[in-house]
Structures are given as C-alpha cells and as structure tokens.
C-alpha cells in the first residue's frame, strides 16, 4: 500500500483568478504582508502497489485526466 500526493498547479504566466481573489479577500479581513496567493489542487491517493509503480500510475493519471498540459504542471510524490 502506498499513499501518493498529486499536486496540480497552474503554469507560470497563466492567470490565477482564484489565488488573486483569495489574496484580495484575506487582505480585506485585515491580514497584511501577503505577497502572493497561489491556488493549487492536491489529490491524495491510497494505492495497492509498490511505491515506484504507484508514482508511475499517478503520473499517467495526470496525463490522462488530472492536468491539462496547456495550463497546468503536476508533481507526484510518494508519502
């Protein structure tokens, strides 16, 4: 059994309205010094496979579904 974490984030240069709006709102709540906010999606999966195989599966899932290569990068890490 392996737990993997799949992190899908926007590529550099792609506008991040969710991050931008979150920044604006936390600032409205009085928090200061926020330099940037980035919106990132994380999927955690528990897989019945050894670590290297599970990582490979996660990467294939990203290519096939979880990330759109036009706007998103992904990283898969074994936990």
């Amino acid at each position: 059994m392996t737990v993997i974490e799949i992190r899908v984030e926007l590529k550099k240069g792609v506008a991040d309205p969710e991050g931008k709006n979150t920044k604006k709102t936390v600032e409205a709540l009085g928090f200061t010094g926020i330099n940037s906010v980035k919106f990132v999606k994380v999927f955690e999966m528990d897989i019945d496979a050894p670590a290297d195989k599970a990582k490979e599966m996660g990467e294939e899932m990203c290519r096939k579904l979880l990330a759109n290569p036009v706007i998103q990068n992904y990283t898969v890490t074994v936990r």
């Binding site: 506008a15 931008k20 290569p69």
Partner: peptide
C-alpha cells in the same frame, strides 16, 4: 491524445 488547448477561467474570475 492529450488536449492541445484549454478553456480556462474568465479574466473576471
């Protein structure tokens, strides 16, 4: 086999 474009969030969010 993989998307070559994306329809992404409106500029206005």
């Amino acid at each position: 086999p993989v998307p070559t474009a994306a329809l992404y969030n409106n500029d206005s969010a």
